[in-house]
Write a protein that binds this DNA or RNA. Structure first.
Lengths: 107, 107
DNA sequence: TTGACATCTCGCGACCTGACGATATATTTA
DNA sequence: TAAATATATCGTCAGGTCGCGAGATGTCAA
């Protein structure tokens, strides 16, 4: 076991910190549901809130959190705001998660 | 193969909750580091703590959290306890995370 | 046994998160 | 203009997390 002066793995501790930040954003059942939904198309805040079974202001807060992480993007159309996936890697990451945690389960 | 063409996928909300729990366990820079390290072999608590630059009792807490999620396993050898990866999907998941967040960085 | 070592557990304080109600802003329609 | 609709923001608070020190537990060797 080498010393702390980085023999083995590089010092990506700050990069790992960033990754951890984004994983925290994903680590919520409602937000995972939002990812699943938005991977199939774009939806308004109201539609997303109804699908997730939560209040619209709460949905708005979750969506903006995901937007801050770069996962989602939004565009206004009249009084409505449509959210959609902005991060292409989300599909791969979600596939990994589903492959591990949702295999065969549920319907 | 069950139906897959579902506009609004059904309620696997509890499965998503479980996935979120495990993602929370991953969503910490030190624990991500531990995953990277243990994907290369098995190490004692002391070795892991030194690699991560944290106190041993703190390392022990992080390791046991990962163990509770089924990611790691441990076996005692004398006074030492070796931890190693117990969840094969961890490699794929970590590859996804690194592909998104650690591309080109570090080294 | 005693003592050193390796790991684990507990309790505390600081900080963060999630959900909620109330309110604010933006847009369309009457 | 006012009112209705759609979304966003704010304040609050219960509950959770993180890191730490102190001490407990387990193991080996003399």
């Amino acid at each position: 076991m080498p010393k702390k002066t980085n023999p083995k793995p590089p010092l990506q501790m700050d990069a790992l910190g960033q990754a951890a930040e984004c994983l925290k954003a994903l680590a919520h059942p409602v937000r995972l549901r939002m990812v699943q939904l938005l991977l199939h198309g774009r939806y308004t805040v109201g539609e997303i809130a109804e699908d997730c079974g939560i209040a619209e202001n709460l949905a708005s807060e979750h969506l903006r959190l995901m937007q801050r992480c770069g996962f989602f993007t939004s565009e206004r159309d009249g009084r409505r705001v449509y959210y959609s996936v902005a991060e292409p890697h989300l599909e791969d990451i979600m596939a990994c998660i589903e492959g591990r945690f949702l295999t065969g389960a549920g319907k």
